[in-house]
Simulated assay, not measured.
Amino acid sequence: MTSSETDFLPNLVAHIVAVASVNGNKAPSERELAEHFAVSRGQVRESLAILEAMQLIERRAKSGIYLTMDAAGLSSMALLARAGVQLNARQIFEAVELRKIHEIKAAELAAQRATEDNLDRLRDILDRSEKQIADGLGLYRLDGEFHLEIVRATQNEMFYKICSGFYAASEQRMPIYFGKPDRNLKSHQEHQQIFEALYRRDSILAQALMNTHLGRAQSYWTEILDNGVEQDTGLGNAPRVHV
Rank of each mutant, 00 (worst) to 15 (best):
M1C: 04
A14I: 03
I16Q: 00
V19Q: 12
V19P: 05
G24Q: 12
A27D: 03
P28D: 05
R31G: 03
A34S: 14
R41I: 03
S47E: 02
S47N: 10
S47T: 02
L51V: 06
E52L: 07
M54P: 00
Q55F: 08
I57A: 02
R60D: 03
K62S: 11
K62M: 11
I65V: 12
L67N: 06
L67C: 10
T68A: 07
A72W: 06
L74A: 10
S75D: 15
M77N: 12
L79W: 04
L80G: 05
R82D: 15
L87Y: 01
N88R: 05
E94N: 07
R99A: 10
L109F: 13
A110N: 09
A110M: 08
A111W: 09
Q112M: 10
R113Q: 15
R113M: 14
D120I: 09
R123Q: 15
E130V: 00
L139W: 10
L139F: 10
R141T: 11
L142S: 06
F146W: 02
F146L: 03
L148S: 04
L148A: 04
Q155D: 11
N156V: 04
F159D: 04
K161E: 14
S170E: 13
P175L: 08
P181H: 08
P181L: 07
S187V: 03
H191Y: 02
A197K: 06
A197G: 04
L198V: 05
L198N: 06
R200H: 11
S203N: 10
L205C: 03
A206I: 05
A206L: 07
L209T: 09
M210W: 02
N211V: 02
A217K: 11
E223F: 07
D226I: 08
G228V: 05
Q231R: 10
D232K: 05
T233E: 09
G236K: 10
V241G: 00
V241N: 08
